[in-house]
Design a protein around this nucleic acid. Structure first.
Lengths: 149, 149
DNA sequence: TCTAGTTACTTTCTTTTTGCAAGTCACTTG
DNA sequence: CAAGTGACTTGCAAAAAGAAAGTAACTAGA
């Protein structure tokens, strides 16, 4: 019972150990807790963000490219997510031509490091959601998309 | 140009190949697309669901236990998420005592299979979000929580 | 040159979801 | 018998999502 109380406090305790408000040093986390899962979800926890990252990992780079994915992301949400991902240092935006101006979005190293998360989701989806495109097919597709420019 | 059009249609093509409306066999996917990432996000893509799964992997089993996590999930959202996870076969609800009635939530195999997703998120968070609790500490905590009952 | 089309968005508006607070109900413990 | 606990439900304001249309800069074709 006391133990139960202790258990419930473990995270809060760790929290107070690490929270920048208490230590005063470093930037620390600014999310709901110092849990890496919670912090990741603060950034990526919605229905669209990781789909954009998926498209980027598949080799897509343009606004319209993301829009054309079969899930049909609403344009205002896409614009907002691209800004957030850029602000978080997960993607970079570069102008690849003038007249007419065109932009390319690319993953940074921080963004590419999300690949294991996506792969784990693909494996889980393949195992537990019938009818999902198998990982091998997705990897082949990424290959095809990256070969041509 | 024609190639670009082809590229944009790849997913739609795969979609039509696999969609149960076209094949007629099996249940198929019911989400936004047959992409395993999109399907996983239809179920898990929000700020709270995977935190509940995290708690379950750490060994928590009760409603109040989830509520006491440092992120402070609102009670109505917790109730709704538990129902969704149960409906999706990711968790099971069991009554572990009468008078007073008390319930325990536990991960099914499908739910435990989400561990690699969480671990990938932990690793990413640890690498890219300063101040997050390291994976080793989380694993030690899970150990401590599971040793006592 | 006029028209239609493309890319990369922004704006507006409606609907849905979230988050907070409070309330409920069955029981237990002092 | 009053206060507390576990497991929720209900009501409501605020935030976010989603649909649709609009904008701006430029191109390519009739």
């Amino acid at each position: 019972m006391l133990l139960a109380f202790y258990k419930s406090l473990v995270w809060c305790y760790v929290n107070s150990m690490i929270d920048s408000k208490n230590t005063g040093k470093g930037k620390g986390v600014d999310g709901r807790s110092p849990c890496p899962v919670a912090c990741s979800l603060d950034l990526l926890g919605d229905k669209w963000t990781l789909l954009v990252v998926r498209d980027l990992l598949l080799g897509k780079t343009t606004y319209t490219g993301f829009q054309r994915s079969p899930e049909g992301i609403p344009t205002n949400i896409l614009a907002e997510r691209l800004k957030r991902l850029q602000a978080a240092g997960i993607i970079e935006k570069s102008q690849y031509q003038e007249r007419p101006v065109r932009y390319a979005y690319r993953l940074t190293e921080k963004g590419r490091d999300l690949q294991p998360v996506l792969l784990a989701m693909i494996d889980w989806g393949n195992k537990h959601i019938p009818g999902t495109v198998p990982r091998a097919e997705i990897e082949a597709m990424a290959q095809r998309l990256s070969e041509e420019k």
